[in-house]
Amino acid sequence: MAEASPRYGPPPPRGKKEHEEPAHASVGFYWMIGIILAIMTGMEVAIFYIPALAGALVPLLLVLSAGKFLLVVMFFMHLRFDSKVFTALFLAGLSLAIFMVSWLIVLYYYLPLFTV
């Protein structure tokens, strides 16, 4: 992360606290993240086709998928460098969504298996 992009945008109005623009990563760093993402996608597909890994398929795929998700959110969407307010906003929506998905699956998929 040697060279950082210059800040951009006009200054905020007088009397307002100035938002410090995030120090974005260098072009080389973005390329490295892109290559890691491509390798992780290749690993996901390889794991899918390896019979010996069938037992650990779901946890392995979930870990790789979560890793890709985090890389994109932290570096491509700049949450790693940006204001924590944006992270809080995103995590609020994401955690609500995860909570909702989990409960819907429990209520409509797993609970009927025990009640029938």
Binding site: F86, L89, F90, A92, G93, L96, A97, I98
Partner: peptide, 15 residues
Amino acid sequence: VGFWTFIASECLFFG
């Protein structure tokens, strides 16, 4: 700020 709020709502939509 508005766009991150929109993205948060989209998480629920796709969820």
